[in-house]
Amino acid sequence: MTINVKTFPRLADAASALSQERGARFLAGGTLVMRAVNEADPSIETIVRSTDPSFVNISVSSGRVELGAGVTMAAILAERELSFLHPVARAVGGPAVREAATVGGNLFAPSPYGDFAAALLALDATVMLAGGVGQRELPLDEFLSRRDRGAVLVSSVAFKRPASDAFRFVKVTRVHPKGISVLSISAQLPTASGRVSGARIAYGAMGPAPVRAKAAERALEGRTLDSAGVAPALAVAHDGTAPHDDAIASAWWRREILPIHLRRLLLGEHPPRHS
């Protein structure tokens, strides 16, 4: 069976092709799709691409960040205004992977991949979908709950810039400096008068998709980021998680170490060199 490759200058046309062509799959960086093609995945008959400039656009204004779904991890690392995201982008594969891996691709990456998507979840991001009737915008967690259904094309993600120093990230891996996640934790911890106000915590590799730790978020509300203050959040750290066994780690191990790393992240302890 030959594969057809169709490239569209406009994202909307790519979105149409994605829903109309049989066995269509959108190709961004290729780290997932090309692997499947190499392995003769029978579900891929048409590769859809776009050269739309908006797809790779980064726009940073005073309050808001919008990233085209085709923006690569390398492009994020090159953007000084996005320095708070650099620890996340740097942790997605080695240098060659970062030149290909995209924001949009990460949204569809199956667990234990998807750490950038988890970070976006902690940033309360919304997702812009292309095609259909104009653009649709939905909250990221809603998108993640239905990402496996139907052919959707993400055109961009957007979120409010976090307060400086309010965003934290840790990725726990077996191999350093890069490796597939045992788990990752992204946290937005805004404070008012030294007390947490409106925390957002998201985990990678603790479920089939990135997941918000809502119980932990609630338990942090109004508290100080010290041992006593974070204890209630640690007690409910596992709520909402459903980790699984894979080649990287067992579900048991992931559950065991989650509160340890959450504690270190909340207390701002230097993440250990070898997690």
Binding site: G30, M34, R49, P95, V97, E99, A100
Partner: peptide
């Protein structure tokens, strides 16, 4: 000039 994994790069790009 940038490193890429040729095995997962679509040749025609």
């Amino acid at each position: 000039g940038v490193p890429r994994l040729s095995c997962v790069t679509l040749a025609e790009t």
